[in-house]
């Protein structure tokens, strides 16, 4: 059993329980124990993209330091949390002024944070578990399903920091889908924005962005969309609801962990066959 530190984040503890629950359960089956880190705090939702902001990044530093103390890699499932944490780690490593100010704020609490190793759950599957191993554990192949992966922004960008995959032509989610026995659909809008948090102020514009993603996935023959971020899923579903046509014609949007859970037999089959 491989042990990892787990940072769930706020949304996974209320609105996106499927993301959390199935991730932990499936990891067990795949030989990974996800230990939730103690006293984690909200990551802030978005990374504050400035050279002189420190306070907004401290919760990420604490999470990193905690994982470093435990000497286990820090895993997140929510893409937004992952983005904040990974970019904070990058700043700690390469921005000397920032890391000094962090030390001034947190003292020993920040100790070792820069040595932490950070994985998104999908990276954990690819790099630690291995997609081949995953394939071997699948009991319920999602055969015949054409699944369109939705990456959105934060999983990939900025490419030079996230280093997840090619930021313009990623493959990690497609490989994941393939290992579950489903057929991945590569469509051009999979790394374009869903509208993010702007529906508070620009509802129409946000819905339009989501609709463009849905349309592109549909045009390329998708049966359903798999997302890795609660906000992406919310936006795509909102867009879907706002479009004309009945519910039966609409592309379902699910969390990738739901598909994983189905394939590994820990969730009732709904999207697979």
């Amino acid at each position: 059993m491989v042990k990892v530190s787990y940072y769930p984040g706020c949304t996974l503890k209320n609105k996106a329980k499927e993301l959390d629950k199935y991730a932990v359960r499936c990891a067990e089956i795949l030989g990974v124990e996800m230990e939730e880190i103690e006293n984690w705090q909200c990551c802030g939702g978005v990374f504050c993209d400035s050279s002189d902001e420190v306070a907004t990044k401290l919760s990420a530093v604490r999470a990193l330091a905690c994982a470093a103390r435990r000497k286990t890699p820090l895993v997140t499932v929510c893409t937004a949390c992952h983005n904040v944490i990974k970019r904070t780690l990058h700043a700690l490593r390469y921005d000397a002024v920032f890391s000094e100010r962090v030390r001034n704020y947190l003292g020993d609490e920040a100790k070792g944070a820069e040595n932490a190793e950070v994985y998104h759950y999908l990276e954990l599957l690819r790099d630690v578990v291995g997609f081949e191993t995953l394939k071997g554990k699948v009991v319920n192949e999602l055969k015949g399903k054409r699944v369109a992966a939705y990456y959105g922004c934060l999983f990939l960008r900025p490419g030079s920091v996230m280093q997840t995959d090619d930021a313009e032509d990623p493959r990690i989610m497609e490989s994941f889908i393939k290992s579950l026995g489903a057929e991945p659909v590569i469509y051009p809008m999979r790394n374009e924005c869903c509208g993010a948090y702007t529906f508070f102020e620009e509802k129409e514009a946000a819905l339009k962005k989501g609709a463009a993603v849905l349309k592109s996935a549909e045009n390329f023959g998708a049966d359903l969309i798999a997302a890795a971020c609660p906000l992406c899923r919310y936006n795509l579903e909102s867009s879907s609801k706002s479009l004309p046509g009945g519910a039966e014609k609409k592309l379902p949007v699910v969390y990738f962990t739901e598909l994983l859970a189905e394939a590994l037999g820990v969730k009732e089959a709904r999207y697979g066959m």
Binding site: D166, A167, E168, D169, I186, P188
Partner: peptide
Amino acid sequence: RFGEYARGM
């Protein structure tokens, strides 16, 4: 490295 131009697609 220019995936945005969809050459592979």
